[in-house]
Amino acid sequence: AVCQRCQARFSPAERIVNSNGELYHEHCFVCAQCFRPFPEGLFYEFEGRKYCEHDFQML
Rank of each mutant, 00 (worst) to 15 (best):
D55T: 02
C6H: 00
N18S: 04
F35V: 14
F29M: 14
F35K: 15
I16T: 14
G41P: 03
Y51K: 05
L59E: 04
A13D: 15
V30Y: 04
Q7C: 07
C34E: 01
E53I: 08
D55E: 03
Q57H: 13
F35W: 10
C34K: 00
V17I: 12
S19V: 07
Q4T: 13
L23T: 12
P37A: 07
Q4I: 06
Q57E: 11
E26K: 09
N20E: 05
F56K: 01
M58N: 15
Y51V: 12
C31A: 01
I16S: 11
F56H: 08
G21F: 04
E26M: 06
C31V: 00
L59H: 15
C52F: 00
K50C: 08
K50V: 10
K50S: 06
P12G: 11
C34A: 01
F35H: 15
F38W: 05
Q33M: 10
C28D: 05
Q7T: 15
E22D: 02
F10R: 02
F35T: 14
C3H: 00
Q33C: 08
F56Q: 01
V30R: 09
E14M: 03
Y51W: 03
C34D: 01
Q7K: 01
L42K: 13
H25V: 01
F56S: 09
N20H: 14
M58Y: 05
V2W: 02
V30P: 02
F29H: 13
R15K: 15
G48W: 01
P12D: 15
E53V: 04
R5T: 14
Y51Q: 01
E14C: 08
A8I: 14
C52E: 01
H54R: 14
Q33W: 07
C28T: 00
C52A: 00
Q7P: 01
D55L: 00
R36P: 02
A13L: 11
F35Q: 12
Y44S: 04
L59A: 13
H54Q: 13
E45L: 11
C52L: 01
S19A: 09
F46D: 06
E14S: 11
F10P: 05
V17R: 09
H27T: 06
C31P: 00
Q33T: 12
G41L: 04
E14Y: 06
Y24I: 08
A32Y: 15
S19N: 13
S19W: 08
H25C: 13
E26H: 10
F10V: 06
C28V: 01
E40M: 07
F29T: 12
P39W: 07
A32L: 05
M58D: 09
E22K: 12
V2N: 08
G21D: 05
Q57K: 12
C28P: 00
Q57C: 04
F46C: 09
R5D: 14
F29N: 07
A32S: 07
C52S: 01
Q7L: 14
H54D: 10
E53D: 15
Q57G: 14
L59M: 12
F56G: 05
V17C: 05
N20S: 14
F35N: 15
H25Q: 00
C52D: 02
E40T: 08
